[in-house]
């Protein structure tokens, strides 16, 4: 049960609260829900950061990339044209988080900092080479999202550091995040895979592949990437990438699935992500698995 609470009005206020031991709460869709489920009690001291204007908004960076504020909601991400067009895998990921309420309340920052091995945006961010911008009273530092996520529920951020934004370098080509879905909505990733590819003429230039919910932290799969890079992106390469994803998986058995099924699905879902990423890079839009329209997810009206 939390004893103290501050609603930070400014960044320095938030950082001061963190420095004195408070935990940030953004949308609370992980933190408060986790406490209700009995996973972990609410921290004793909370600082609410939902009012920080500095952490909002999506902006173009000088280098052709995007800077996404930590408080940007999943709904805002899906609705943003640049995210949809250039970082489609990220839009795919945010589009399938929870329900429309979860997508409106849940933030990118909370998704990342919660560091669940099943979290949706991790794979895309890692494949895009995203960096986390962490700020504390002692200054700012940048950490690649791939290095930030160190294990289930663990990050490389210090407790006094606030994630203020995620920066994405310029991206070309196509990308996709796909997940195994038992129901059409309200699912949690049991198996997820991301692929981002660039083209060199008709051939695949570079490829990035990551698997989600299959290892204690979301990881890239170098064997899958090399199976694709420089190739024709045909069925053989896709198959090999899928097999590599399955080989890299360290699946567990639990109420959601057996290890065998998870491993088999790792290959299937990875193949789907790869196929869609290549198709998108080649300009096809009919393979877009973003499940709902932007109108539905809601454009930011702020």
């Amino acid at each position: 049960m939390s004893a103290t609470y501050t609603a930070a009005a400014t960044l320095p206020e938030a950082l001061a609260a963190l420095a004195s031991g408070a935990r940030p709460v953004a949308g609370g869709t992980d933190l408060v829900v986790g406490a209700r489920q009995g996973k972990a009690p609410l921290p004793d001291s909370l600082v609410a950061i939902h009012g920080l204007a500095e952490l909002r908004g999506i902006a173009e960076t000088g280098g052709g990339g995007l800077r996404i504020g930590a408080l940007v909601s999943h709904a805002d991400l899906v609705a943003h044209p640049a995210v949809r067009e250039r970082y489609t895998a990220l839009a795919d990921a945010s589009a399938i988080v929870g329900s429309h309420a979860t997508r409106h309340v849940g933030t990118l920052g909370g998704n990342v900092m919660n560091a669940s091995p099943a979290m949706e945006t991790g794979g895309p961010l890692i494949c895009f080479g995203a960096e986390a911008v962490l700020v504390s009273e002692s200054g700012e530092r940048r950490v690649a999202v791939a290095d930030l996520l160190t294990g289930p529920g663990r990050t490389a951020a210090r407790p006094d550091e606030l994630l203020v934004a995620i920066e994405l370098p310029a991206a070309a080509g196509g990308s996709c995040y796909a997940r195994l879905e038992y129901r059409r909505q309200m699912e949690i990733a049991v198996v997820g895979a991301t692929c981002a590819v660039t083209l060199e003429g008709a051939r695949i230039g570079s490829a990035r592949v990551a698997i989600t919910a299959l290892t204690p932290r979301i990881v890239r799969v170098p064997d899958a990437e090399s199976a694709l890079a420089g190739g024709d992106g045909g069925a053989g390469a896709v198959q090999a990438a899928g097999d590599a994803a399955a080989a890299a998986a360290q699946p567990i058995s639990d109420v959601r699935a057996s290890a065998d099924y998870r491993r088999a699905m790792a290959a299937v879902i990875a193949r789907r992500a790869v196929t869609a990423a290549i198709a998108r890079a080649r300009g096809s839009s009919d393979s877009v698995p973003i499940p709902a329209s932007p109108a539905l997810h809601g454009a930011d009206r702020d």
Binding site: A7, G27, A48, H100, H104, R301
Partner: peptide
């Protein structure tokens, strides 16, 4: 503020 929220899991103070 016009957006749907699952109020069971949202802190009242927020």
């Amino acid at each position: 503020d016009g957006r749907p929220v699952n109020s069971c899991s949202y802190l009242a103070l927020q």
